[in-house]
Write a protein that binds this DNA or RNA. Structure first.
Length: 291
DNA sequence: ACCGCACCCTGAGCGC
DNA sequence: TGCGCTCAGGGTGCGG
């Protein structure tokens, strides 16, 4: 599931494929939950346009278009943004994959889940947005208009501080993990990195936020920053559908300490890792190392 | 203001 | 073998 590191890696790799190239055609799928802006409007507004800048805001990728529009992309749970040259079996459903020989599992072929394709004047690689579950989003904001989705975002998770976390957690009865997942507090933090940061900080995810000490807030902030930076360095976590935009897998999943390790031994104390629901999310922790 | 929860979606994995 | 059920989860919006 794409969180800040995966989104940042995607942004970095897509930037040279998108920025500065004149769009000649936008090919879209039919209207759906995925399209906040209707596909017809996207096609009209982006034909002939150039994206001049590509930034990340939390888990959003935001493009500045030379017509003044702002292009918002969100990968949701299963969104994949890549160049047409990417080669990865993760770009195919397992049933389709199973019907192909290894040598056939090469170049990407647009399918039912391919909602958006950008074609360019230079006739080079296309930029493709595929999303099986359609929890991803694409949206165009007209010149001068702000976007409420972006306005809601809090501080970027890479810039978290113990002080900020301490202030945000006072008077909150909800579990500390819910605060870490709250995009209006920490933009970009998601399920994997919340669990990992809380493990490294030695704090149980279900603890009431207001009961977390200043010292613990410092530890959580430092560890969150560290795991996010480390994940970006190692290419992100390729759990389920995420691939880097060149089709390669990330490596951070090999450095996980608790996420999706239910029942396996803690690397520190060998206690079995536990899983429970916190804030309606699958949550993993070590009962011995975290208190 | 804050909190919990339903909803959106579809493939994987499981039990029968 | 195959069907049908359940689960997964980011973000939004609603009701309490």
């Amino acid at each position: 599931m794409p969180e800040l590191p995966e989104v940042e890696i995607t942004r970095r790799r897509i930037e040279p494929l998108l920025v500065g190239r004149r769009i000649t055609e936008v090919v879209t799928g039919p209207p759906s939950y995925f399209f906040i802006t209707p596909p017809e409007r996207l096609r009209e507004r982006l034909r002939g346009a150039v994206v001049t800048k590509l930034e990340r805001r939390g888990k959003y990728i935001v493009g500045s278009v030379d017509n003044g529009d702002s292009l918002l992309l969100h990968l949701g749970m299963t969104g994949q943004l890549f160049g047409s040259g990417a080669r990865s079996v993760r770009l195919l459903s397992s049933t389709v994959r199973a019907s192909l020989s290894p040598e056939e599992q090469g170049d990407f072929v647009p399918d039912l889940h391919t909602h958006l394709r950008f074609r360019f004047e230079d006739e080079g690689p296309e930029v493709i947005f595929r999303d099986v579950r359609k929890f991803g989003k694409v949206m165009l904001t007209p010149p001068g208009e702000s976007n409420p989705r972006l306005d809601r975002l809090g501080r970027d998770a890479l810039l978290v501080s113990g002080e900020h976390l301490f202030e945000a957690t006072r008077k909150r009865k909800t579990p500390i993990k819910a605060v870490l997942l709250d995009q209006s507090v920490l933009a970009g933090c998601g399920n994997i990195y919340a669990d990992e940061a809380l493990f490294h900080a030695g704090v149980r995810p279900g603890r009431r936020a207001a009961r977390i000490t200043r010292r613990e807030c410092d530890a959580i902030a430092a560890e969150l920053k560290r795991v996010l930076e480390r994940s970006i360095e190692t290419g992100g976590s390729s759990i389920s559908d995420y691939i880097a935009p060149d089709g390669s897998d990330g490596q951070f999943q090999d450095e996980r300490r608790v996420y999706a390790r239910t029942g396996e031994a803690c690397f520190v104390c060998e206690s079995p890792i536990r899983r429970k629901l916190v804030a309606q999310r699958g949550t993993h922790y070590c009962p011995q190392c975290q208190s």
